[in-house]
Simulated assay, not measured.
Amino acid sequence: MDDHDIHTDEDIERLAGELHERIRELNRVIQEPPGLSQPTAVYTVLGNLAQTAFRLVQTTEHLDAFLTAELDAGRLGHDRGTDPVPTVMKAHNALARAAEQTMELGETFRRAQGALAAIHANQTTVGPSSDRDEVAAASLTNLTDHSAAPDGAAGEDFPRPIDDVLPDAPHVEQASSEPRSKPQVPPPRRER
């Protein structure tokens, strides 16, 4: 699909399902051998997770705006024949809470990423290991023993987009690196 295609509800549902599947695939490739081998990859993944969370805030706002517009236009009904306003208000309040929690999640990922900015592997390459416990123990030692870490950046090749890390990822437009204002959580609607 390009930007000029007409998108249907089915397209939107499929994209949400693909998001779920991409996270499942990310979890699988992190956990299965060879998995992660460099702390720079953790830094990159955390940055991408932060951006994903911030974009999910926008998604909740768009969903709420749609429901609000449909309710205001009188295009929503309730399966039980009752007034849809109380039910849509519950969804509105839950979406507002989800936006707040997702914003905090993004900020938490960003703080975790920032904490790792100066962390790097002591070895120039860490290949697949049959004993991943040794690699994990060495990484933990590196994280706690600051005196052993040489000066310098963790690497020139990060942050990398999540699509570079996952195999066969469809092209996804990268977000602007410019800081943007914090999305506003919509105020609660009053019942009619």
Rank of each mutant, 00 (worst) to 15 (best):
L166N: 04
A121C: 08
G152R: 08
R160K: 13
L166C: 04
E100L: 07
S181K: 13
V88N: 02
D83E: 11
G114D: 12
S177F: 05
S129W: 02
F158P: 00
T144R: 13
H92G: 00
A137G: 02
A96K: 06
H171F: 12
S139F: 15
G155C: 07
S130K: 11
T68F: 06
A99L: 01
A148S: 15
E178C: 01
G127C: 02
D72G: 01
V172F: 08
E61A: 11
E156W: 10
T144N: 03
T68G: 05
E178M: 11
Q174K: 11
D168Q: 14
L140I: 03
S177Y: 02
L143A: 14
P128K: 05
Q123A: 15
P150Q: 06
V88D: 02
T102R: 06
E156C: 01
P159N: 09
D133K: 13
D168N: 15
T124I: 14
Q174C: 01
F109W: 12
P128Q: 09
P128D: 06
P179V: 07
R75S: 05
L166R: 04
R111C: 01
S176L: 10
G106P: 03
V85R: 13
Q184M: 10
L116K: 09
A118I: 03
T87Y: 07
A175I: 04
N93T: 11
D151F: 07
P161R: 09
E100F: 01
R80E: 13
D72M: 02
T108I: 00
T124S: 13
R75I: 00
T102L: 14
G114H: 10
E178N: 10
P170W: 05
R132A: 10
S139K: 05
A118W: 03
A148R: 14
Q58D: 14
D164L: 03
H92W: 12
P167A: 07
A94E: 11
A175K: 02
E173W: 02
T87G: 00
G114C: 01
V135S: 03
R110W: 09
I162H: 00
V135H: 07
A154G: 15
T144F: 03
L105C: 12
D83T: 08
H146A: 14
A169N: 04
S177K: 09
D133C: 03
K182F: 01
A96S: 15
R97G: 02
R97M: 11
V172W: 10
Q184P: 00
P84I: 07
